[in-house]
Design a protein around this nucleic acid. Structure first.
Length: 857
RNA sequence: GCCCGAGUGGCGGAACGGUAGACGCAGGGGAUUCAAAAUCCUCCGCCCUAACGGGUGUGCGAGUUCGAAUCUCGCCUCGGGCACCA
């Protein structure tokens, strides 16, 4: 590896060479080293879709910059990689192209790993695994059995999307405009026995522990808070005036008991026991409920659909006035899985109730009005802030004028004292239903025995492996049809039994992989000693689209793993710091097939002319504005071409430059070339400096050293702050200064080596080359990060702007520690200031030392 | 519909409440070259001005402040999530 001073910058030649050097030195193997602080940096592992896209490059380069920087800071670093390998796309591929989901998945992994390797990521590949490896999912099954034993798993009915033509359960993604994606049939919400994690046991804790996550973005914490959805209110029962099918009461939960005097109806969910009882007797009720159950089972579908109601003809008594009777309606927007599945409607102070009451001509009775206002007919619900004091027209407790918070408190106390209901805390967070009626997932290790019922598989029989001989020519779960696989022996009584055919949600796989990375081949889910050394993840990096579900489930799992002895108490919040990077977006190119269905095209298939896009055959494509890159929409950019053409360092530098990492970035191809040019300049500069005789004198050493230490300080701070784009801007500046300096060879060589160190996290191969040529010892990858000398960071004189009424009019130069008086004197003596004053006397002069002078006239 | 974000030149973006546009891209002019590529120098928000300089400007509208891209309120547009996409 001798310096080749005349050679052109050739990434194809140098990149593999340095990658090999790192490998043979074992630079990236994570080693338990009690003498050093550890640092665990993790990027959300990829789904093996087939090819890496530019979003992956951005994501993994970010993690790699952190990993390399932390290593240089002296940390023992764990930076692993794996594959989130179960899930629907593999089954879809099997349906579309034949073949087996496993073959497709492992092939994709092979291809993607081949594409990632040339990036020179400092990953400990010896820890790699895929969640579809039986070794991994077998341990997941073991963990599952422990969680079951700990009471964290149970079965109950849940709602699924049912395709009545294909006779199969659909994912939300497979429901398009309320219809099945293949059959086109109207989807129904159907109840089905399902497996659940008891995440709701942890609602309060998952909520309160968010406060301790100081290095998480507020927006993520806020989204989780809202998702968990704490609410305090009153739970009580309305007595039916006449029992129906043995039901005498309707239990409701309300956060606004202070509005009881404005109640005008009671609404129940279509799946409420009372609704079901009526449904059995009354065809009109049955028809309404059937209609209400149509469409996708998503929150969004329910919230945006038309609000419909059905008057049951039943009535209930008002709890505070037995003579006051109000009707019971079935309403399609009330959900059985929140609260009690029943509410009382107060149209005057809830917009949805107002709309409902208007539509069905129910009374609208205001409970309070704004202070100073009089009672008047409403055109919309009056919903003031909870902290705003209002005047109660129909109070049940408390002061005549009070805030909602005070009124609710008083109302709860009053109701409790009269024996009406009780003070109740409710969370929006529901238990996590994780059964999937699909093949390509982790089998749920249970068997159905005629004698013993539903029985957990014995641990020694794990892993329960997926059978390989399956076909996807029919809708539904191939496991259901696989009688040989289903047949097994009951682990309790030894009689013939049948396997559970549901598999696990892929979110289960990704809820504990971070822990598995600490001991990826352990014969138990984790190895406590390894986990204790490496956990927690010091820096987790991933997409904002995972702000709620993945991160919340992982937080739950860490607690569950602690409860079952697989993680220690310190790891119940597994991610110390979280960074959510923006997405790489790209326009979507779409045409339509004969049936009018959307057909998507890859960017490289589309030629752009004058803002319009055309396929090779001349057909014009519809251009849909930038959206998250997704394989199904084919709006992905292939980074392999960029690496091929310019090398990994160019790709890495380019994705780190320009856009702040937390922001979405619209991918454009121009710019990669400019990065390549810059790296060439650095290369040439390295040649030039290397060629200087060691004792060559020069001038401006001080200036160069000031610039150098300023750069060390700036780059260090910006990397620490995840502002990689700013770090790169500073590196451009330093390069520019270094290429113009006339300083001595000694100073230039020193500056060049430091430049190599500062560039190393971003462009590690070029940095090694530069370091090596300028006489750096060993590998720059293993060199200690440089330290800025504070003495070189302060300037003796500073320039201050002088504003007139906030508008800049002049500039003055003052010593850095000049007093207010001195600054004011200098300002008033300045020619431009005298001119701007034009003889007038300033009303006031504001001097902020080191910042600004503002003259008020 | 509900929850969470984001909006600054032709483009990506800088800017502890304190000189808006750092740095990069694109573009103009120049040097070098037989020519080109590469490289180097230089200009570059918009409007007025020959220039000096002036006005204006951070999605829109109000407000707080000596001073607002930054804080507050109300809108608009775009993006993410809404529990079976990962």
């Amino acid at each position: 590896m001798s310096a080749q001073s005349d050679a052109r910058y050739s990434p194809k030649e140098i990149e593999p060479r340095w990658q090999q050097a790192w490998d043979s030195d074992g630079c990236f193997a994570a080693k338990v080293d009690p003498a050093r602080p550890k640092y665990y940096v993790l990027e959300m592992f990829p789904y093996p879709s087939g090819r890496i896209h530019i979003g992956h490059v951005r994501n993994y380069t970010m993690g790699d910059v952190v990993a390399r920087y932390k290593r240089a800071q002296g940390f023992s670093v764990l930076h692993p990689m794996g594959w989130d390998a179960f899930g629907m796309p593999a089954e879809n591929a099997a349906m579309a192209e034949g073949g087996h989901p496993g073959t497709w998945t492992y092939n994709n992994i092979k291809v993607m790993k081949g594409q990632m390797k040339p990036l020179g990521l400092s990953i400990d590949w010896s820890r790699e695994f895929a969640t579809c490896d039986p070794e991994y999912y077998g341990q997941q099954q073991a963990l599952f059995l422990d969680m079951y034993k700990a009471g964290l798993i149970y079965r109950k009915t849940g709602i699924v999307n049912w395709d009545p033509v294909d006779m199969t359960v659909l994912a939300n993604e497979q429901v398009i405009d309320g219809k099945g994606w293949r059959s086109g049939a109207e989807v129904e919400r159907r109840e089905k026995e399902q497996w659940f994690f008891k995440i709701s046991d942890y609602s309060a804790e998952l909520l309160s522990a968010l406060d301790g996550l100081e290095n998480w973005p507020n927006k993520v914490k806020l989204q989780q808070r809202n998702w968990i959805g704490y609410s305090r209110g009153l739970q009580f029962a309305f007595d039916l005036t006449a029992p129906a099918d043995g039901i005498t009461q309707i239990e409701v939960f309300t956060t606004r008991p202070d509005t009881l005097q404005g109640a005008s109806f009671v609404g129940i969910a279509p799946d409420h026991p009372l609704a079901k009882a009526l449904e059995a007797q009354n065809p009109a009720v049955a028809a309404f409920c059937a209609e209400a159950r149509k469409g996708a089972a998503t929150e969004e579908a329910m919230a945006t659909g038309e609000k419909l109601g059905f008057d049951t003809g039943l009535t209930v008594q008002h709890p505070l006035d037995p003579d006051w009777h109000m009707p019971v309606w079935i309403a399609n927007f009330i959900k059985m899985d929140y609260g009690t599945g029943a509410v009382f409607g107060c149209p005057a102070h809830d917009q949805r109730d107002f709309d409902f009451a208007t539509k069905y001509a129910l009374p609208i009775v205001p409970v309070f009005v704004a202070k100073g206002a009089e009672e008047a007919p409403l055109t919309e619900a009056y919903v003031p802030e909870d902290s705003e004091s209002v005047r109660y027209l129909r109070p049940i407790a408390g002061e005549p004028e009070q805030t909602a918070d005070q009124a609710v408190d008083a109302a709860i106390k009053l109701c409790e004292s009269r024996g009406i209901g009780k003070d109740t805390t409710m969370y929006r967070l529901r238990d996590w239903g994780f059964s999937r009626q699909r093949y390509w997932g982790c089998p749920i290790p249970f068997v159905q025995c005629d004698t013993c019922g539903l029985v957990p598989e014995a641990k020694e029989n794990l892993p329960v492996r997926l059978p390989d001989d399956v076909t996807f020519d029919k809708p539904g779960n191939p496991l259901d049809r696989h009688t040989a696989w289903r047949s097994c022996t009951c682990p309790e009584c030894g009689k013939p039994a049948l396997r559970e055919t549901d598999t696990m949600d892929t979110f289960v796989d990704s809820s504990w992989y971070f822990a598995r990375f600490t001991a990826p081949h352990a014969s138990t889910p984790t190895d406590l000693e390894e986990a204790d050394y490496w956990m927690n993840v010091d820096q987790y990096i991933g997409g904002i689209e995972h702000a709620i579900l993945h991160l919340l489930y992982s937080r739950f799992f860490a607690r569950a793993m602690h409860k079952t002895g697989h993680l220690s108490a310190k790891s119940i919040e597994p991610f110390n710091a979280l960074f959510t990077q923006g997405m790489v977006t790209h326009a979507i190119y779409q045409t339509r097939d004969a049936q009018g269905r959307a057909v998507y095209h890859y960017p490289e298939e589309v030629e752009l002319r004058d803002g319009a896009g055309f396929l090779k055959d001349g057909k014009e494509v519809e251009i849909i504005p930038s959206a998250k890159m997704s394989k199904s929409k084919r709006n992905v950019v292939d980074p392999v071409a960029i690496i091929d053409q310019f090398g990994a360092d160019t790709a890495r530098w380019f994705v780190m430059s320009d856009s702040p990492p937390e922001r979405d970035v619209e991918w454009t191809a121009s710019g990669a070339e400019a990065t390549y040019k810059h790296l060439n300049r650095v290369w040439t500069l390295g040649d030039k400096i290397a060629a200087l005789p060691a004792d060559a004198p020069g001038e401006g050493d001080d200036e160069l050293m000031r610039a150098l230490h300023r750069a060390i300080d700036d780059v260090t701070k910006t990397i620490e702050g995840f502002a990689f784009n700013k770090a790169i801007a500073k590196l451009y500046e330093l390069t520019s200064i270094l290429s113009r300096t006339k300083a001595s060879a000694k100073a230039q060589k020193q500056a060049g080596r430091v430049l190599a160190q500062l560039m190393a996290p971003m462009t590690p191969h070029l940095a090694e080359e530069l370091w090596h040529r300028l006489g750096g010892a060993g590998l720059v990858t293993q060199a200690q990060w440089p330290q800025a000398d504070p003495a070189l960071l302060v300037d003796d004189v500073i320039t201050l702007p002088v504003q007139f009424n906030g508008k800049r009019k002049a500039e003055i130069t003052v010593p850095k520690d000049a007093s207010k008086e001195e600054v004011e004197k200098t300002a008033l003596a300045d020619q431009a200031v005298i001119k701007a004053l034009a003889g007038a006397t300033p009303k006031k002069i504001i001097v902020v030392p080191g910042r600004i002078v503002n003259v008020v006239i």
